[in-house]
Design a protein around this nucleic acid. Structure first.
Lengths: 269, 269
DNA sequence: GAATATAATTCTATATATTGAATAAAGGGC
DNA sequence: GCCCTTTATTCAATATATAGAATTATATTC
């Protein structure tokens, strides 16, 4: 119960801040509403939305109506409930259409996922806050995967997080502050994690051996779009027990060289 | 040149109207900006965006900054240019995650596309304005397809348009007004089109034999989520010359029965 | 089926988002 | 390198989006 309250309240405070500082607060409210509707498993009523996000109902109503007009939200006149509308797909298409990384990474991900029977992800790193899955490849049934494009994770979690810490030059204080907020199945101490980050910096790729999800091994290698800032990573996810022996080193090699090839292609032009 | 001016101006006027009527005009502006960035092949500067959409530069700047904070737009500090950010994918994921139609339609589309060697689409019908492609299946290389999810078309175009006209009970005056704005490779007259719409109503599916795109045959069948309002369609697209003889009738049958099965499944619960 | 509770919507005063001009910064030409 | 053009950003007055109360509609309970 305490947990369920915690989430909305943190949300509230962040939203309140964004609304206050912004010269276009309606947009922060709209974004919060869209994200809430995106997370929800069912359509939501005005009151529920307003309460969850700490918005004034009437204001919330005006924002929702504007979003309905723009076809980002659908409104069921019978039940008076709101949900996401297909218009959001059009935006996603616009993004995918001219994203070099997804175009270049997809065949690479496909190849590695088939060769090693692992799930492969391409992630886009957005600041120190989040990474977003922008490409997926799974051996076998690939239906479920495409639905995972768009997933958001905290920046410092799992193997990709160690890459971000290793190659993203952020202050130790900031890293530690954010590290504390992470949720792992088997949390490493900050010291252990720092050692792993150092190793990542030395070897050029990161491994998460069951910390994030018990029994699941994650390998990640960084991809640069410009020398200045780490922007992407490619990630392999496999059952830990299936990556014993020489398989894991081979996968690491494949990932590292693929990441280097991608970096060169992206930096080139 | 006249053509290039025409588009922005119509855009302007619609946007101006939306802004004026709305109690949250910032959201209309934000939506227009996002759509513009989605269409653009390159990142855009503030001035370009403001001019194209008829916005005041300072207002436009504030909206853009809010969108950057929300991770829907990325800002390159060096070039001062804006483009879509991966955050829009997260919204799309939210939509896809709990959309019954895509879940149910995908295997059906896959089956028919393979059986007849055609491209199959699932479309979502948004009022009389647009339809949006929400599921795609192509025989063979299916990489290119996923990028087309999110494509928007005018509601009355091609075979799906005839379905919307046939089963959507809209006034003839409105249909004619919208019909005039359509662009076809080989435009039918309004009379011819009306006859085809009648036939569509009679036989339960629509055919576009090269009108929309020369040499390409499109077949569409309507799918209902509720008895009240036509909400979706499944669409087959193939080379006209490859659909000669008995193949086209067989495809029509397959599409019609698949659409009926889907309608029953969606209405059920 | 009436009564109550809850949700959605309208309305109006006021805090504030928007405007348009003024300023600063960045390119482009020679 | 300097001037000139274009673009981005700040600033202060005012038109207006927002908050909160009042009203209407919709569910829920007995």
């Amino acid at each position: 119960m305490a947990d369920r309250l915690k989430q909305p309240l943190t949300q509230d405070r962040q939203l309140a801040k964004a609304v206050k500082d912004s010269k276009a607060p309606a947009i922060s409210r709209a974004a919060a509403i869209l994200r809430l509707l995106g997370k929800s498993d069912t359509p939501l009523g005005l009151q529920t939305i307003a309460r969850t996000l700490g918005l004034v109902p009437s204001t919330c109503l005006y924002v929702l109506r504007a979003l309905v007009v723009e076809e980002f939200v659908s409104f069921d006149a019978d039940t008076k409930r709101y949900s996401l509308e297909a218009g959001v797909l059009t935006l996603a298409r616009g993004w995918l259409r001219r994203n070099e990384f997804t175009d270049l990474a997809q065949p690479v991900l496909d190849r590695i996922s088939q060769a090693f029977d692992v799930t492969m992800l391409g992630t886009h790193i957005v600041g120190l806050d989040h990474m977003i899955v922008v490409a997926v490849s799974q051996s076998g049934n690939n239906f479920q995967l495409s639905a995972q494009i768009g997933s958001r994770f905290p920046a410092l979690i799992s193997a990709t997080g160690r890459c971000i810490a290793a190659f993203g030059d952020h202050s130790e204080a900031e890293l530690q502050a954010r590290f504390k907020t992470l949720r792992w199945d088997e949390p490493p101490t900050f010291g252990e994690w720092q050692a792993q980050v150092s190793q990542t910096r030395a070897q050029g790729f990161a491994v998460d051996a069951g910390n994030y999800i018990s029994g699941v091994t994650v390998v990640a290698a960084p991809v640069w779009k410009s020398r200045a800032k780490l922007s992407h990573a490619i990630v392999a996810i496999g059952i830990g027990s299936a990556l014993k022996g020489k398989k894991l080193p081979a996968l690491q090699d494949a990932l590292l060289s693929a990441a280097q090839v991608l970096s060169n292609q992206l930096c080139g032009d």
